[in-house]
Design a protein around this nucleic acid. Structure first.
Lengths: 248, 248
DNA sequence: CGACGGGTTGAGAGGCTTCAACGTACGTGG
DNA sequence: CCACGTACGTTGAAGCCTCTCAACCCGTCG
């Protein structure tokens, strides 16, 4: 929102993968220490993006993958016909950009939801490195496979579902994924994104989302208050969701 | 339907990638002739599966990717809670199984919709080969990226859409994809799958699908007759769909 | 011919959207 | 520090679209 950030701003300093705090989430998993140095050579660390700042825009050339180091980002489609849709949220450790490998163009805007730092990994160099480091190649195949699996089963199977189920799926998924990160404390999930963003991502109207949250609260699953959602009955929530998780 | 086919049935004979008729669609794209031999060594060709036959089942161990040589297949989730959902259709050249790389288990049943032949590519060997053949690695990254892109923009963005738009998107996509294959002739799309399968894939009730097809016919876009759909106004169809294609 | 699976048609119910109005939190400037 | 504006969020009422259930049609096959 505040100012346009050309790609070049992303390159701030060499990133030391051996000491990154999200190391266990990054693509360097499983790579022996002696090799992380090679990754260091191609990885660059971005400066911080403030909330609302655009990291890249729809139509920009695809050159690099990004991994979130800290913060949260969202991707959304352009608003050509007036409508905008959030297509994804990304958390620390998430790999961004694999959806653009084939198109060579960014299909979405990427926007920081709060203050966010990224790791930039030039894809051409990563590919080259992959042929040298089979573990890295494997990790990348795994990540992409994960994403495909997630997309197909979250999106495809959820299509015919009621709003309440979709919300429960979203909440339990995020809750478990963010585990004991700073976004979760004592069963309370604190997310920086607006409810409008979340409803857009879930394919709902904000009004519907609001009403359904209230229903879920009435049923005792959660307690929703501003940007904090307290998970009261995880077991129960998982049970409702379970019918659609018969494929893990 | 007719009989269970254990994985081993897939292995019938060595496949000669250099002479396969869907060569330009396969993973061997871009690989120089002298290297296709290496691919030949690991690729196996399946016998033919008849319509309704199950290629693999949900829960089976993931070991190989499959490429359709001829015919059409569908994947569907198990019917644990009584409901079954078609999660994908696969056509000649399509790569099947990349959604299972991370889970190690097949998330769906794979079923032949008509007489279908597959190429089996053991994944572990393919990975190894990828480190030797950068072009092959690149092709695989590309394929997976394509799938992610397709999934996210077909499923995510289509969520809030009307039934008619979803159907139009499906039809135009298939129509263009199958180009001048044997499934398309003179603007007429002839698909072997049932309308129940298609509606399931689109997340609709068969009744709704039927009614909407009729509407689309009344509006002059198509002419639907049994398993044949004649595309009368591709331009018009694309125009309706276009609003959701502002990301290509 | 009769049975069966696939497909269509009709009527009614329910859920989500839409539109409009009202509340609430937060930041900015006075 | 308070007042106001704006963005975000909630609430209400009405309408529409899709689902559900039930009946019917049609082509295929024993």
């Amino acid at each position: 929102m505040k100012k346009k950030s050309p790609d070049i701003r992303l390159v701030k300093s060499k990133q030391d993968c051996g000491h990154c705090d999200i190391q266990e989430l990054c693509v360097s998993v499983g790579i022996e220490d002696q090799y992380t140095e090679k990754l260091n050579e191609i990885v660059k660390q971005s400066g911080a993006f403030d909330a609302g700042q655009i990291v890249y825009r729809r139509g920009d050339n695809f050159k690099s993958l990004y991994v979130i180091q800290s913060g949260i980002a969202k991707s959304e489609t352009g608003n050509i016909d007036g409508r905008q849709q959030v297509t994804g949220f990304y958390f620390p450790g998430d790999l961004i950009g694999i959806e653009s490998i084939s198109t060579k163009k960014q299909p979405c805007d990427l926007i920081a939801v709060e203050k966010t730092r990224f790791c930039e990994i030039p894809f051409a160099e990563l590919e080259k490195l992959c042929t040298e480091l089979p573990e890295l190649q494997h990790e990348l195949f795994l990540r992409m496979g994960q994403r495909i699996h997630h997309d197909e089963f979250t999106c495809l199977v959820n299509r015919g579902e009621t709003v309440e189920r979709r919300i429960l799926l979203f909440l339990t998924e995020i809750f478990q994924k963010l585990g004991n990160s700073k976004y979760v404390s004592a069963n309370c999930l604190s997310l920086p994104m607006t409810k409008a963003d979340i409803s857009s991502y879930l394919g709902l109207q904000p009004e519907t989302f609001s009403r359904s949250l209230k229903q879920l609260q009435k049923k005792g699953y959660i307690k929703s208050k501003l940007k904090h959602v307290e998970i009261l009955d995880l077991e129960g929530m998982l049970q409702v969701v379970e019918n659609h998780r018969h494929f893990d």
